[in-house]
Nucleic acid binder design. Structure first.
Ligand SMILES: [Zn+2]
Ligand SMILES: [Zn+2]
Ligand SMILES: [Zn+2]
Ligand SMILES: [Zn+2]
Lengths: 131, 131
DNA sequence: GTATCGAACGTTACATCATAACATATCTAT
DNA sequence: ATAGATATGTTATGATGTAACGTTCGATAC
């Protein structure tokens, strides 16, 4: 468990819930887990998530409408991040590949496209679940 | 405009709406465009979309909760597809890169991960809008 | 200290996206 | 004709996300 000293109470609660979880959580699932801590409305969760995403402490999985704590919260890997999502057990692996980043950068440059953020999600089965 | 001879009426209508559109459309926007053709309920659109996605004639943009007609409906590029989405004008470019596909395959093989489908979406500004 | 400003918070109501469940219709092959 | 599979139509509901409002809190300036 990481420190989060500079986080607000709600941000801390939300990040804590994500870190404690086995896999990705929807905003409403997070809310349910934090009712006992005083959270009552979706916006409280969404606002905290927005900040956590900005800070790189959490990520949004677009193909699941769900969120995970960053697996590498200390090394702020600013480059492109990829996620492998097991559809059986829900486990998420976060990784990055420099060659992939370079290829996408090259495509963007050739097209004159200015990327702001990129999402990359591989759905499938992890080693355990494929066995 | 492509032929779609083997499509059902609803599938044909939905694909037509996507092809006519400048950019990605949400399911409900498609529904609104097809009210005059007799469509009344979201499920009619979602069911048609499911088939079109299966056939590779349309794609879902996860980061937008929206859909586009395939830009290459004839060459069924079975490999990984990437999308560049302009956040200013909404234009979507569909492309693929063999090196990227190979790198992801290599990662998956090394991890023992069995991919079923991959989404890759670059958000940013197209050349025109960046000028 | 207290005035001021901006960020975070709390709450209600609402908007948007997607599916469950069930009844009909249509198409295809025997 | 009949049986099975696929597509359709309809209602209701679930799941996800935001607008708009006012309040509270914490830092800086005077
Ligand atoms: Zn991360
Ligand atoms: Zn698994
Ligand atoms: Zn395509
Ligand atoms: Zn543009």
């Amino acid at each position: 468990m990481t420190e989060h000293s500079d986080l607000t109470r709600n941000q801390s609660l939300v990040l804590g819930a994500l870190e404690k979880a086995e896999g990705p959580l929807s905003a409403y699932t997070i809310l349910d887990k934090l009712r006992d801590d005083g959270l009552r409305a979706p916006l409280q969760v969404y606002r905290a998530l927005d900040k956590l995403l900005d800070m790189g402490l959490a990520h949004r999985l677009e193909s699941l409408n769900a969120f995970v704590a960053c697996a590498h919260p200390h090394c702020h890997n600013t480059g492109l991040i990829a996620f492998a999502i097991c559809e059986t057990c829900g486990q998420v692996s976060e990784f990055s590949d420099d060659v992939v980043r370079q290829r996408l950068d090259a495509w963007a440059k050739a097209e004159g496209f200015r990327p702001t953020r990129t999402t990359m999600e591989i759905r499938g089965q992890c080693r355990k679940c494929a066995a």
